[in-house]
Design a protein around this nucleic acid. Structure first.
Lengths: 230, 230
DNA sequence: TACCAACCGGAGGGGTGTCTCATATTTCTC
DNA sequence: GAGAAATATGAGACACCCCTCCGGTTGGTA
């Protein structure tokens, strides 16, 4: 739904004039409020609450961020960049298995700290979204991370880059369940799963990997429940 | 919230009179409708839709099932029994690893067929709920399943029964993402994770297991979003 | 200082969902 | 087949959230 409506992220080639001081202040307050609301309640936190927490009226929120997607993107650009940097670093690490672990651990850590990011990582933003590029880049890097670890022999050869989505999704719910009770429990789950990723004595898998297309559709479908998806 | 309200599952020692014929008919129609609504949309499907699909007014639904929890329990008693039977069988199988697989595979299959059951498996019902006993029994059996597989040496010794919750939770989201696109993909995820459960692949885990108490609280907290939890 | 564009506030209309209650209907029993 | 009890109905009160609109306010500029 959000994609069809006018969006601040659409091509605005000449944002000549700087924001007025009060507008600047409000915009920042909104982002701070959104960060905390989304972190606590996920990407579908009520926007009225974001506005209230920012000390601003709801109309002001909509003035700055015409759609929820605009607000989400402005809020999470930073964290997505952190994730991406972890991926960029992972492909340069000598030990490709360590690179894989670094990539996944950083991702899971971000997810477990922030329920909104947890939601964001699980879905695919619409093509038009300005953060979609970052998602695509992370996906590309994921392919290399997997290939390198397989070339070095540490990662089981029947694993595909699409299987990494299993880590995102499975971790998503595990951390949702445990973050308030045992904030580090997700590491245990992650490393259990990672042990299943190792080459040594891998057992045959009972189902084929997802295709790129299937993965894409799966991530779109998760976003369909109103947040930002198609 | 639901627990404090009058519940059909509370102690009714003398339900002397049988249901009137129309009431019986409606009750069954409601259960059928609930099964399909919950299967499609999860435990939080709108009750108005259940009533509509049953061809019955909303007031009638509330007459039969004063709380959502009452309806959920009546709807899922059967599937929970199937799960429990799988657990009972698992502890009698000679190959304890096969028993573990049978237990988890049945559970995941039930979860992937029914979004409502998927929700139900992830949470802990309040003590007062009539299905809470079945959940407790399944948990007990899970302890034996884990112990036997460890005695036989196939299951890594540092795994605890609480870790089985990771399978429930992680599978929950994986199947939610993939069921419409690749209905069997969850098997791949499950067996990746199971490979991580094998003794011969075990590497040290970076976090301690959940305690029983932590697991309990984690499952309660997942239910807190309005469905049936505390 | 005075003006105007940019900005803000918040009431309000629309949508969805829960749950209740007074009234109407059906079934059972005698 | 008539009366009583059980049941069904669905409008409506309430709560939440989304998003818009326009009168009032503010900040930058001449």
């Amino acid at each position: 739904m959000a994609i069809d409506r006018p969006s601040a992220s659409a091509g605005n080639p000449a944002p000549v004039r700087p924001l007025r001081r009060d507008a600047q202040r409000n915009r920042e307050a909104l982002l701070t409020a959104a960060r905390s609301c989304f972190a606590e309640q996920g990407m579908e936190a009520p926007l009225e609450q974001v506005a209230k927490r920012a000390g601003v009226a709801i109309g002001t929120l909509y003035r700055h961020f015409p759609t929820r997607l605009d607000l989400v993107q402005a809020t999470f650009a930073g964290k997505l960049a952190v994730w991406r940097e972890a991926a960029e670093k992972a492909v340069t690490m000598d030990d490709a298995w360590a690179g894989l672990c670094h990539f996944l651990e950083t991702m899971c850590e971000l997810q477990s700290q922030d329920r909104g990011f947890n939601d964001l990582a699980s879905i695919r933003l619409p093509e038009s979204a300005c953060l979609a590029g970052a998602q695509t880049r992370i996906r590309e890097l994921g392919v290399h991370i997997v290939e390198r670890a397989q070339e070095q022999g540490s990662l089981r050869p029947d694993l595909t880059p699409e299987d990494l989505a299993f880590v995102i999704w499975s971790h998503s719910r595990v951390t949702e369940a445990t973050h308030a009770i045992a904030p580090d429990a997700w590491r245990r789950h992650l490393y259990l799963l990672l042990d299943g990723f190792r080459t040594d004595r891998a057992h045959p898998l009972p189902a084929p990997p997802l295709t790129e297309e299937q993965l894409y559709r799966a991530m779109i479908s998760l976003g369909g429940n109103g947040a930002c998806g198609a």
